[in-house]
Computed example of a mutant assay.
Amino acid sequence: MTKTFLASAAVAALMISPASAQDASTVLATVNGHDITLGHVIVAQSQLPQQYQTLPDDVLLQGILEQLVQQEVVASAAQDGMSGAMRIGLENEQRAYIAAMTLDEVSQGEIADADLQAEYDAQYADVEPVTEYNASHILVDSEDAAQALIEQLENGADFADLARENSTGPSGPNGGELGWFSEGMMVPPFEAAVTDLSVGEVSAPVQTRFGWHVIKLNETREQAAPTLDEVRDQLVEGLRQARVDEYIQNLTDAADVARPELDIDPALIRDVDLLNN
């Protein structure tokens, strides 16, 4: 929708009375013999960007109708003089629109509860609980510095205070807390050290590409598979996409598709001059 629509809507709302209509075939305007119906307006409205959806219905009705009239005036005048590029573009737009609307109808069909449960079982029934770790660390530049911190901890120093005072990592100001993570989320030496610790235990110095770490394991927990309700939207979206993929594949398998063997220079796709030859 262009700025022309907003200006047209404001003017047309003052000039045109709302049409009395009973169904989508009701003619709201006729331009050079071509009817513009309530159905045309409804479809145009349904495709408006969200920012226009809050406009009053009377403004939308008159504004969309005025735009459709203007479009028909221009289109009918240009019909006989359409360039090759315009005709091909129109074919592409028609093909894309029909395909998109059809696939939307296919995907939006109801998903049966049994199908949803079956998909959930297929994805999550055999999922084992995942151990998650909550740890803190102090990152320093050398093994000696890390060992000195460990000695201070053994003498009663507070881990969070030492992290705030000494850590060069981004978690330092937060007392070294890293929050919850599971296997695969940390670099291997760090992860190996964490999984070897007991809750409350502090590691020996651990070297990674970031430097030397002193690690404390704060807590562990078992993260079970999500419930069906927690992943419902994700599962529904997957089932809808699978339905669309199957529909396309079935049609493609049944279609008569011929691709002649031609030696085409890929660079030709950029030669727009070919459209009007």
Rank of each mutant, 00 (worst) to 15 (best):
P170G: 07
M101R: 15
T252R: 15
E132A: 11
A75G: 03
V69L: 02
T54L: 11
Q117V: 14
T54D: 06
L38M: 13
D158P: 01
E119Q: 13
D57T: 11
A163Y: 12
V236L: 05
A204W: 00
Q62K: 14
A77Q: 09
I88T: 07
Q79V: 06
V130W: 06
L6E: 11
V41H: 03
G238L: 01
Q71G: 09
D141P: 14
E154C: 06
Q123K: 15
H34K: 13
E128C: 02
L60F: 04
Q94T: 13
A10R: 10
L262T: 11
I264W: 10
L275I: 03
E165Y: 09
S107T: 03
R95A: 13
G200T: 07
R87K: 15
I42P: 02
V11Q: 10
S17M: 09
E219S: 09
I64P: 01
Q152I: 07
E91A: 11
A9E: 01
A224K: 12
Y133L: 03
M1H: 11
E237F: 04
R270P: 00
Y97V: 02
L48A: 14
L268Q: 08
L268S: 08
A193P: 05
I36K: 05
A267S: 15
V27F: 08
Y120T: 03
A122F: 13
T131E: 10
V31P: 07
N218P: 12
M186Q: 15
L178D: 06
Q241L: 06
G172V: 04
G175I: 04
G33Q: 09
L6G: 08
T54M: 05
A157T: 07
G179H: 01
L48D: 00
N134I: 01
E72T: 05
Q207L: 07
A255E: 06
D158N: 11
L153N: 09
R232I: 03
F5V: 04
L28A: 07
G211N: 08
V11D: 09
L268E: 07
A163W: 12
Q79T: 03
E191I: 06
E237R: 12
A29I: 01
E165I: 04
V244I: 15
V74D: 04
E105Q: 12
E72L: 00
G211S: 07
S76K: 13
L68V: 06
V187G: 02
A112V: 02
S76Q: 15
E201D: 14
A122C: 03
L228D: 08
E66H: 11
A135K: 00
D245H: 10
P18D: 06
V73D: 00
L90C: 00
A242Q: 14
T220K: 04
W212A: 01
